[in-house]
Nucleic acid binder design. Structure first.
Lengths: 94, 94
DNA sequence: TAAATTTGGTTTATATTGTAAACTTGTTTA
DNA sequence: TAAACAAGTTTACAATATAAACCAAATTTA
C-alpha cells in the first residue's frame, strides 16, 4: 500500500536542496543557504550527506579569493528524487 | 520559497496513518498496524502523538471481550493534512 | 485445570537525526 | 592592526523514530 520513503530525501532541508538542484544546472553553497533559510552548519552537513549518497556532485574552488562550493545533482540523485516523489503519491494520492 | 512542513506529519508512519484516516470513516489499531506494516509499539506511540496534537480522536472500547482502539481524523487533522500536502508541493512542484 | 499461546495493545531503551552554536581560515574595512 | 565579514566545517545537544520488552486478559491445548 504505502511505499517506503527514502530517508535521505525525507528531510525538509535535504528535500529543499534537492528540489533546487532539480531545477537549476548547479547552485553554490550560499545560494542554497539563502533559498532554504537554513543555517550554514545545517546546509554543510546536509550537502555532505547528499554527496556521500552520490545524489549530488560537489566541487570546491575559489571566486574572488573566497571559497566557493558548487553543487550539482547527479543521475542517481535525479532518479532518487523522482522515486521519492512517486512514493509520496501513495500517501497523498490526489 | 519552501513552506515549512509540519513535523508531526512529516514522518513516514504518521503520514501513513493520517493518509488512511483521510480515506476511511474510522480505523482500528490492528487495521492501521497491518496497512502500514509497522510494529504495534510504533503505531501505539504515533497514535498517541497524533491524538495529543488533536489531529485524531481515539476511542477505546471492547469487541468480543478484547480491547479495541478506534481512530478517526478530526477537522484539525484534515486541515493539517491538506496544508501539509500543499506545502509539499512547493518542494516537488509538478 | 494448569500451562502455553494469542490478542491487543503500552512502556522503555536505544540508535539515529536534525539542528544550531561554536569554531576556523582567510579577506576586507575602518 | 584590530574589528568585522565571508564561507564554510565541526561539535554538541535535543528531539525522533523505532523496535524490543513487557503486560493483562482471553483462548487454546495438553
Amino acid at each position: 500500500m504505502f511505499k517506503d520513503l527514502d530517508p535521505l530525501l525525507h528531510s525538509q532541508l535535504r528535500l529543499g536542496i534537492m528540489s533546487i538542484l532539480m531545477a537549476v544546472e548547479h547552485a553554490d553553497f550560499t545560494y542554497l543557504k539563502e533559498k532554504t533559510n537554513a543555517t550554514a552548519g545545517n546546509v554543510s552537513v546536509q550537502i555532505d550527506k547528499l554527496e556521500k549518497a552520490g545524489y549530488i556532485k560537489v566541487a570546491k574552488s575559489f571566486r574572488d579569493k573566497r571559497p566557493l562550493t558548487t553543487c550539482k545533482i547527479s543521475k542517481t540523485g535525479i532518479a532518487a528524487f523522482e522515486k521519492y516523489v512517486n512514493h509520496l503519491k501513495t500517501y497523498i494520492n490526489k
